[in-house]
């Protein structure tokens, strides 16, 4: 199997983002094609990297480490970007989503990448827990990106600015609808993910790291999850709320969730804080050999 490194796809994504930025000045079909090719090349390298890690750890990427979990979320975000870009190449989605993807990939270098050998028990439940949180986070990320697009377009329309020929933004009505769906999809996934996490901790068996109520990742996850839940209920109960208000709330809530999640993962890895997700030591020496975080 082709062995790739994080730098390979990080460089591809960074160049794709640079191409998107250059489109701001003058739209050119060639730059667009190069940008797409770079994104696809990055995605292929990204996929090989995750497969390689999975093979080495004998675990699915979602479960092996916080490093791999973040890379899976970034991988999903690149897929969404490619899908949207192929559907409508004129949309300026890349300008907003690439910084988020790059942040996820860079952050993954600063969180623990040691595989945690704790899959002796409840393997399926753990897989469900990680998948739900991964999907929920991807939808949160989408909601964040869509909210930023909404606020950008809203500002342009309020200030009566001429549409920049090089940047095409979706209309407000469409972004509002997609944003609502992103949140409505994110919250159930998040909630179910958190709930299964609590369940797994309560029913933890011997040899597993038990959950403590002072675990920063758990506390942060619970608070941001609750915040998203409030937003979810508010969206469902409001008959019709101003789009800008929804976008602002979504941007803040999703932004807060992403920052908290990434920040806490980095913090636990940096200070070696005891956390069920952040800094669990590898239980076999081989597991620690590959790709230790700097």
């Amino acid at each position: 199997m082709l062995k790739t490194t994080v730098v390979c796809f990080l460089a591809s994504y960074a160049l794709a983002f640079a191409c998107e930025l250059s489109q701001l000045k003058r739209r050119h079909a060639l730059t667009r094609i190069i940008s797409l090719l770079l994104a696809v090349a990055g995605l292929v390298a990204h996929t090989f990297y995750l497969l390689h890690r999975s093979k080495q750890a004998h675990l699915p990427p979602l479960l092996s480490s916080a490093h791999d979990w973040l890379l899976v979320v970034a991988w999903l975000a690149v897929l969404v970007y490619l899908f949207v870009t192929l559907a409508d190449g004129e949309l300026a989605m890349g300008l907003v989503i690439w910084p988020v993807i790059l942040t996820l990939v860079i952050t993954s270098r600063f969180v623990t990448d040691s595989p945690s050998y704790r899959l002796d028990y409840h393997r399926n439940w753990k897989m469900l827990h990680a998948s739900m949180l991964g999907l929920g986070t991807t939808f949160v990320l989408l909601g964040f990106v869509l909210s930023l697009l909404y606020l950008w377009q809203h500002r342009r329309l309020k200030q009566r600015l001429m549409a920049n020929g090089a940047v095409k933004l979706p209309n407000l009505e469409l972004i509002e609808r997609l944003n609502r769906w992103a949140i409505l999809a994110a919250v159930p996934f998040q909630t179910f993910g958190i709930a299964t996490g609590f369940g797994l901790s309560i029913f933890a068996k011997g040899g597993e790291l038990p959950m403590t109520w002072t675990d920063p990742v758990v506390i942060g996850g619970a608070i941001t999850g609750a915040l998203m839940g409030v937003l979810f209920v508010w969206l469902l109960t409001q008959k019709r709320s101003p789009g800008r208000q929804v976008a602002m709330l979504t941007a803040w809530a999703c932004g807060f969730l992403l920052v908290t999640m990434l920040g806490l993962q980095m913090l636990t890895a940096a200070v070696g804080m005891r956390s069920i997700h952040g800094s669990a030591p590898a239980t076999t020496p081989e597991a620690a050999v590959e790709g230790r975080a700097p």
């Binding site: 549409a163 933004l169 609808r177």
Partner: peptide, 25 residues
């Protein structure tokens, strides 16, 4: 060239550049 880019009548700018950026249909 960009000779045909951008609308130049008030009604076409209003609908093409602004109304269509607000409503989907």
């Amino acid at each position: 060239t960009r000779l045909a880019e951008g609308k130049v009548s008030i009604a076409s700018v209003a609908v093409g550049d602004f109304a269509k950026s607000i409503f989907d249909h």
